[in-house]
């Protein structure tokens, strides 16, 4: 692992994660992530031929419940925590999605 990841690589990943980084952050993370990846790479030397991956401990199957409607948050309560909402219409409000 080199001393630093390419800046473009950090920016690509940050875009995937919808995360705006400053120049300083992108440069810092490029260095620190190279450090961390260089360390965690040790797992690649372990022989795992034929070993099943573990996603959760102690989980043996998917839990199901009866398909019965139960009480949940009412609309006003759900909207109450939103940074912007149209309470009368019952919508979360966001900036424009299409065009500019």
């Amino acid at each position: 692992m080199p001393d630093s990841l390419p800046r473009a690589e950090v920016e690509r990943v940050a875009r995937l994660a919808r995360l705006a980084l400053t120049d300083d952050e992108a440069n810092l993370f490029a260095r620190q992530l190279a450090d961390i990846l260089g360390y965690v790479e040790q797992v690649q030397a372990i022989d795992t031929t034929g070993i099943a991956p573990t996603s959760h401990p102690h989980i043996t199957g998917t839990v199901q419940r009866a398909d019965v409607v139960e009480a949940s948050l009412d609309r006003d309560t759900a909207l109450a925590s939103a940074p912007a909402a149209d309470h009368a219409a019952g919508f979360f409000k966001v900036p424009r999605v299409l065009g500019s």
């Binding site: 940050a14 995937l16 994660a17 919808r18 980084l21 993370f29 900036p95 999605v97």
Partner: peptide, 29 residues
């Protein structure tokens, strides 16, 4: 924010701290 995408990216970029951002980038990678 001028668009939804910009709102997502700037909200997260401005309001998460450095360690959380570092881990999101590492985890996404």
């Amino acid at each position: 924010a001028g668009s939804l995408d910009e709102m997502y990216a700037r909200t997260r970029g401005e309001r998460f701290g450095p360690e959380v951002k570092r881990r999101i980038v590492l985890g996404t990678y």
